[in-house]
Simulated assay, not measured.
Amino acid sequence: MTATQTSEPRLYDVWLMLVEFPDHPGVGKPRPVVITDIDGDLLSGIVAKITGNMSWDEAGDVPLLDWKAEGLDKPSLVRCSQRFYFNRSELLRRFGRLSLRDAEHVNDGLAASPDVPPHRRRA
Rank of each mutant, 00 (worst) to 15 (best):
Asp73Gln: 07
Ile50Val: 13
Met54Asp: 06
Ile38His: 11
Leu42Thr: 13
Pro63Thr: 06
Ser76Met: 01
Asn107Lys: 14
Glu104Trp: 03
Thr36Gln: 10
Glu90Val: 01
Arg101Ser: 11
Trp56Leu: 12
Asn53His: 13
Ser76Ala: 15
Lys68Asp: 11
Ile38Val: 15
Arg83Val: 05
Gly96Val: 01
Val116His: 14
Ala112Gly: 04
Lys68His: 13
Asn87Tyr: 12
Ile46Val: 15
Cys80Ser: 15
His105Val: 00
Ala48Leu: 09
Asp66Lys: 10
His119Thr: 11
Leu65Lys: 08
Pro32Ala: 10
Ala111Pro: 00
Val27Asp: 08
Arg93Ile: 13
Ile38Glu: 07
Gly60Thr: 00
Arg31Tyr: 04
Glu90Trp: 07
Ser99Arg: 11
Asn107Gln: 14
Pro63Asn: 01
Pro75Trp: 12
His105Asn: 14
Ala112Val: 01
Arg93Phe: 08
Ser89Met: 12
Val33His: 08
Asn107Phe: 10
Val33Ala: 07
Ala59Gln: 12
Pro117Leu: 06
Leu43Tyr: 07
Val106Phe: 09
Leu72Ala: 04
Asp102Ser: 03
Val106Pro: 06
Lys74Pro: 00
Leu77Val: 07
Arg97Ile: 10
Pro114Asn: 14
Pro63Ile: 03
Ser76Arg: 03
Arg121Asn: 12
Ile50Lys: 02
Ala111His: 07
His119Gly: 02
Leu110Pro: 01
Ala103Asn: 08
Val34Ser: 08
Gly109Asp: 04
Leu91Pro: 00
Leu77Gly: 00
Lys29Arg: 15
Asn53Asp: 15
Ile46Leu: 11
Asp37Pro: 00
Lys29Gln: 14
Asp61Gln: 01
Val62Trp: 10
Pro32Ile: 02
Gly96Glu: 01
Lys29Ile: 12
Val62Asp: 05
Gly28Glu: 12
Val78Trp: 07
Met54Leu: 14
Asp115Trp: 09
Gly40Pro: 09
Asp61Gly: 02
Val33Pro: 12
Pro63Gln: 02
Ala48Val: 09
Arg88Glu: 13
Arg31Leu: 10
Asp102Phe: 03
Gly109Ser: 05
Glu58Asp: 12
